[in-house]
């Protein structure tokens, strides 16, 4: 009975969790009644585990990422000329800095380019990374938004809304001051499990380009609301960070406003025409 091919296929699909509930029921009845089939199921499971072990041992490529980043940079026509040039080099420099673990100082070098949105992004990223290597990623530790928000008074000219997202799995951890574009700006620090999420709030930037990106495991998402620009930075996976940003924005917008405002990832009509 165990020899026929269809049974074996069903057994495989059963092991893979691909059978419909009815088929599962039928298969489990057969497994209970046929010891040989039961033994074969054990073997398929054992094989599956062994194959997974063998495949997991395949080494990853240490140089692939660098090569791809370099190549895509070259493949991008805009990066080879005009204002794309220095920005590309700047990004590459910071990338190298992050890889070398020297990024903490690396971002600060570009602070004087306060006119360039890219430089602001570097500063925001540097603030986040500095927070991670500091004993605490925040200057004031509090999960109470009514403590964190007033703490910014007198330290920065921006008084950020401090939404409470603890019930959604993103507890507030505290706040800190970062220097972006030569200005002191507030940063809210949230946690998600062991990940730290920095939300830095600065004055609205004049340029909407280059909104979100991921570098060496750190994702930066940017959006604007009113006359403020928000950056969310974290090593959280990009999807969860996007989810966090959506929640953050919906809480800021207030319960009455249910309209979903998409991130401005497409706001580069000018870029598209280049």
């Amino acid at each position: 009975m165990t020899g026929d091919r269809e049974t074996f296929l069903l057994l495989g699909a059963y092991t893979d969790g691909e059978l419909s509930p009815g088929e599962v029921l039928a298969m489990e009845r057969r497994l209970a009644a046929e010891p040989a089939l039961q033994a074969m199921a054990e073997r398929v499971r054992g094989l599956s585990a062994a194959v997974q072990g063998v495949l997991a041992d395949l080494p990853a490529s240490p140089i692939l990422r660098g090569r791809v980043v370099q190549r895509i940079g070259f493949a991008d026509p805009a990066s080879a000329r005009g204002m794309g040039g220095p920005r590309q080099r700047l990004a590459a420099t910071l990338l190298a800095g992050v890889v070398a673990g020297a990024s903490v100082g690396g971002g600060a070098v570009y602070l004087h380019r306060s006119d360039a949105p890219a430089a602001m992004r570097e500063a925001v990223l540097a603030g986040h990374l500095r927070g991670l290597v500091a004993p605490q990623p925040f200057d004031i530790a509090s999960s109470d938004r009514h403590v964190v928000k007033p703490w910014f008074n007198g330290r920065t000219t921006i008084a950020p809304e401090t939404p409470d997202l603890a019930d959604l799995g993103f507890p507030l951890a505290g706040g800190r001051i970062d220097i972006v574009g030569g200005r002191a700006v507030p940063t809210l620090v949230y946690r998600r499990d062991r990940h730290v999420i920095s939300v830095t709030i600065g004055p609205a930037a004049s340029d909407g380009a280059a909104v979100d990106e991921r570098r060496d495991g750190t994702t930066i998402l940017r959006w604007s609301l009113g006359d403020l620009t928000y950056w969310a930075v974290s090593d959280l996976n990009a999807r969860d960070l996007r989810g966090f940003v959506d929640l953050f924005r919906s809480r800021l917008a207030g319960p009455g406003d249910r309209s979903h405002v998409p991130l401005e990832r497409g706001r580069t009509a000018r870029g598209l025409g280049e």
């Binding site: 026509p77 990066s79 990106e213 991921r214």
Partner: peptide, 23 residues
Amino acid sequence: MTTAARARFSLLVLPRLDEGYRL
């Protein structure tokens, strides 16, 4: 097809290099 494309590429593709490489 410049900054936005690269940002999207960084977001969508770069995190998946390793698993693509295994294949």
